[in-house]
Design a protein around this nucleic acid. Sequence first.
DNA 1: CGGATAGTTGACTTGCGTCAATCCGCGTGG
DNA 2: CCACGCGGATTGACGCAAGTCAACTATCCG
Lengths: 190, 190
Amino acid sequence: MISKGWASSYKFLRNGSRQIVNFHIPGDFLGLRSILLRIADHSIEPVTPVAAAEIDVSAFRSSFQRSHRLARSFLWVASTDEAMVVERFIGVARRNAFDRTAHLLLELGERMKLVGLGTNAGYDCPLTQYHLADALGLTAIHVNRVLRQLRERGFVTFRNGRVTFHGFDNLASAVDYNTAYLDYKGSKIN
Amino acid sequence: MISKGWASSYKFLRNGSRQIVNFHIPGDFLGLRSILLRIADHSIEPVTPVAAAEIDVSAFRSSFQRSHRLARSFLWVASTDEAMVVERFIGVARRNAFDRTAHLLLELGERMKLVGLGTNAGYDCPLTQYHLADALGLTAIHVNRVLRQLRERGFVTFRNGRVTFHGFDNLASAVDYNTAYLDYKGSKIN
DNA sequence: CGGATAGTTGACTTGCGTCAATCCGCGTGG
DNA sequence: CCACGCGGATTGACGCAAGTCAACTATCCG
């Protein structure tokens, strides 16, 4: 479990390009599924130096047998991971570069808020434009153009490792961003 | 669990377009995750009339507590679902229309083989070009153009509800298709 | 001071979307 | 039995969002 710093999980294609599947911020578990199942279907790379807490796999597994409720909580976390991938998938397939970029910045903001590292005003973000490009299915050059637009249209500024929202809800409604899939309370789990 | 026919799981966007997240063929479980967790994050629609076997949720859940191994098998199935989404995600983000379409046809072929409904020669496929478009993040018109190319270049023919491969491995290597993520034996599960 | 790494900007190209016809097979109803 | 409508497939002309190529700048660091 990450306690400090950011990481990314990604996959390389034969043609040399890579696709970042998700970013991991403090509080996230790394490789939940792969640990449970002993499969590795993508690689992980730090974005910044990362401090992490190690969790003993067998203790982790056996805790599931003891507490059915705990098991479901973790299943829920794993499930959120998938929901984020689906969300990103849909974004890449059906939204233009502008909306897509905004969505990613909003989602990361949301998640940073959840762990107390951000507010509606903004958050510290160590990603480069290349990271964003690899996550969004764009080129770094185009990401740059989009970020400029986001700035000039008065929505977000991303500079010097800091994302600053000029009206979070404003942007959210402009690009039709819906946060439900990250919300534990919103789910019907009990 | 589907015993006959095809279905699709999809999501609508506010702008009216829809994205098909996955297709479900005979042998597939519908809504594994959502049943386990009682959340619904996408809708399901039949492609053809579907015959399905119903599985009692509580019996299903309690069987997990009795058999740890069974639980992991189902986790593996759920995990394969996610792997397919990731694969599709990467395809849309990083591959052109031609490769992407080929990948989908190959993946479906692979899956049909696994349940004994297809061979390397081909399989029956009830999807329309609109279905493909909604799954691939393309327009039906462009799907049509791509299918023509696939035909003219001697790779696959998709006509009258039948996909015919003119050399499965041929196409697979041409578009860099790798089947590992579907392969139970390939995983390190035990 | 040189050499990475990241960001920025402009000119040009291209893959895919959009719009608009046309065609075909099928079912339905007059 | 024919007319019609409809869903799906096909094709062409045209436009645009994003990619590519190519500089140039800024900053940090050894």
